[in-house]
Design a protein around this nucleic acid. Structure first.
Length: 566
RNA sequence: GGGAUCGUAGCUCAACUGGACAGAGCGACGGUUUCCUAAACCGUAGGUUCCGGGUUCGAUUCCCGGCGGUCCCA
């Protein structure tokens, strides 16, 4: 039975007139205090002007103690709880039986749009794209696990002035052969050449680019076909990266998709009296001065991100009617999103809009850009990750395991985990060794723990005296300290998933999984499993199976592969 | 100039949103393989949580004022 409910009812029995909905039982901060603790006696005693220890004692008097081996009031009024072996066994048994690994299906019947990755077309992805892609995808997976109906949308940068430069460059800067076998690398090359020529003083090339852009915007068939081809090639290239990273989108609605809707958006703002002319531009002002002013139509008549995002919200609300839209972008865009959300509020949208900002990735202390010459391609990073993983794997790969496949799983896992294990808010300065760490708090550490437990379980299955991996209460008899710590921690898995979702921080889950794997490794080291006598053997195997399920499910939520053998 | 955000061990980061003696990884030093996978485990050293106030029984966490980094707006 739920400990919070038990303790809460003791509070209520002791003081029937008070509201104790906020009371919570949490894991003990230190095993020496017991298994769980409740700190709320202190808060409520203060509120009710009582001595906190007396208050806590009164709660203990009213506590149903059947689930506890020991209950004590400690320090200024902490309630320290040690659970009984029966309680733990029965909790483990019901956790093992629970569907979805115990993750509450609180999102069932609710729809969420998650907007992430969003690279620019006609450019190769680089290390700066990892964060939005990997963090966004983990949030995507976590929300799906909670039962949400998720629409993962890739808001591609597929429209804008760069296409005039690209079309001109395509026509004049590439060989026939390059045009016939067009790749993103070629597109990038012709863009660089064309952009350089557009800077020439006579302005002839620049004007030609502009003319191509205007033709495209006016729907010229030839330019539109070229643009379409550039986009298709770009998406195919992105998908190649996404396949490596285990990322899948439901839609690829880029900026171009909303292009035609923007005049109507502006009209709507004007009709609602929200927009006004200012220095030739159309702007929205805010009551909160810190938000400054948002331009929705530039003085040259063009639209910008704010306009496009407003069109996008309107479209998403119409097509999906989500209860929430989550945007995963770098934190430079915080002001933009605050402005944009404020406008949505003025327009009366009730959809919850959430910006998940992450710290921008830099390299050697500088922003990643072609200009800085520090642009590392995502493809190169992933190839290097696989190469390093393979160097370690190669000479000790188990019989019958494909070396390349394993090296990919480990290499990509390392890259993803390096990012996911950090709080999104912290900025990361890219470093090869850290991004590709294979030991300690790393993706491969978790994968290794998973492979070891799977191997153990496979060995157990080979034994003639088959064990029951899902014993009922009593079967989960926990005997040693390391074993108990692991067992108690496993029960926290659903809570960790919920916390990760509430905070939009996959790092919460990554941290939980690392701790779990550490506890398992200690347990594994100190306690014999297959070699112990019954009934301890079965109990420990059941715990191992549970650990394997939790770790496997958790890694899946982070989008990290789980090889059975390493 | 205004605003956002961050500042924790030598380095990279945690700390379940106000709880007990601030924890991990890497690096350093020492130990553990006739034993279920040593990519592992155990131990030692390492801290004025940027500084100064305040609120509180209790502050890395909240408030105020500085300092420093990064970013956004003008």
């Amino acid at each position: 039975m739920d400990l919070t409910a038990i303790v809460k009812s003791a509070f209520e029995k002791a003081f029937p007139e008070e509201d104790f909905t906020s009371v919570r039982v949490v894991p003990a901060t230190d095993p020496k205090f017991g298994d769980y603790q409740c700190n709320d006696a202190l808060k409520f005693a203060k509120k009710m002007r009582m001595n906190p220890r007396e208050f806590a004692a009164k709660v203990v008097e009213n506590l149903d103690r059947t689930s506890f081996e020991k209950v004590e009031v400690a320090g200024p009024g902490f309630l320290n709880l040690t659970v009984s072996a029966d309680w733990l066994a029965s909790e483990l048994a019901s956790f093992a039986k629970a569907s979805h690994c115990g993750i509450p299906q609180s999102g069932s019947g609710r729809k969420v749009v998650i907007d992430y990755s969003s690279p620019n077309a006609a450019k190769q992805m680089h290390i700066g794209h990892i964060r939005s892609t990997v963090i966004g995808n983990a949030i995507d997976r976590i929300f799906r696990a909670l039962g949400y109906d998720v629409v993962a949308d890739n808001h591609l940068g597929d429209w804008g002035t760069q296409f005039g430069i690209l079309i001109k460059g395509y026509r004049e800067c590439l060989t026939d052969d390059e045009r016939a076998n067009l790749t993103v690398a070629n597109l990038e090359k012709c863009y660089v050449l064309s952009a350089a020529k557009a800077k020439e003083e006579d302005g002839v090339w620049k004007d030609a680019c502009k003319a191509e852009l205007v033709k495209l915007q006016q729907g010229d068939a030839e330019n539109l076909a070229l643009w379409k081809r550039f986009i298709d090639i770009s998406i195919a290239e992105f998908d190649r990266m996404y396949a490596k990273l285990g990322v899948k989108f439901d839609t690829y609605r880029g900026e171009s998709y909303y292009n035609s809707m923007m005049p109507a958006v502006v009209e709507r703002l004007e009709k609602a009296g929200l927009a006004e002319e200012s220095e030739g531009a159309l702007v929205v002002k805010f009551e909160d001065e810190r938000l400054g002013v948002a331009i929705v139509r530039k003085s040259d008549g063009g639209f910008n991100y704010t306009t496009s995002d407003l069109a996008c919200v309107e479209s998403r609300v119409k097509d999906y009617d989500p209860e929430r839209i989550i945007y995963v972008t770098d934190d430079r865009q915080q002001l933009h999103f605050r402005q944009f959300f404020a406008i949505c509020a003025k327009l009366g949208y009730t959809t919850r809009l959430v910006h998940v900002p992450f710290g921008l990735m830099s390299y050697q202390g500088k922003a990643i850009s072609t200009r800085e010459g520090n642009l590392i391609k995502l493809d190169d990073l992933l190839a290097e990750a696989v190469r390093r993983a393979k160097a370690i794997v190669a000479d000790r790969v188990p019989e019958g395991v494909d070396v390349d496949e394993l090296a990919e799983a480990i290499g990509y896992g390392a890259v993803k985990y390096a990012d996911l294990s950090h709080d999104p808010a912290t900025a990361i300065d890219f470093n090869w060794d850290k991004a590709l760490a294979l030991e300690g708090n790393s993706g491969p550490y978790l994968q290794y723990a998973y492979a070891r437990v799977q191997s153990l379980l496979a060995k157990a299955d080979e034994c003639p005296e088959a064990h029951d991996r899902r014993p009922t209460a009593g079967g989960f008899k926990v005997t040693e300290a390391a074993e108990k710590r692991l067992a108690l921690h496993l029960l926290e898995f659903p809570g960790a998933v919920v916390r990760a979702a509430e905070a939009y921080k996959p790092s919460v889950l990554a941290d939980y999984l690392f701790q779990t794997a550490q506890l398992y490794s200690t347990f594994y080291q100190t306690s014999p499993i297959l070699k112990s006598e019954e009934p301890v053997r079965s109990a420990r195997l059941a715990l191992c199976a549970l650990f394997g399920e939790v770790l496997g499910t958790g890694l899946h939520l982070l989008g990290i592969r789980t090889p059975n053998r390493i």
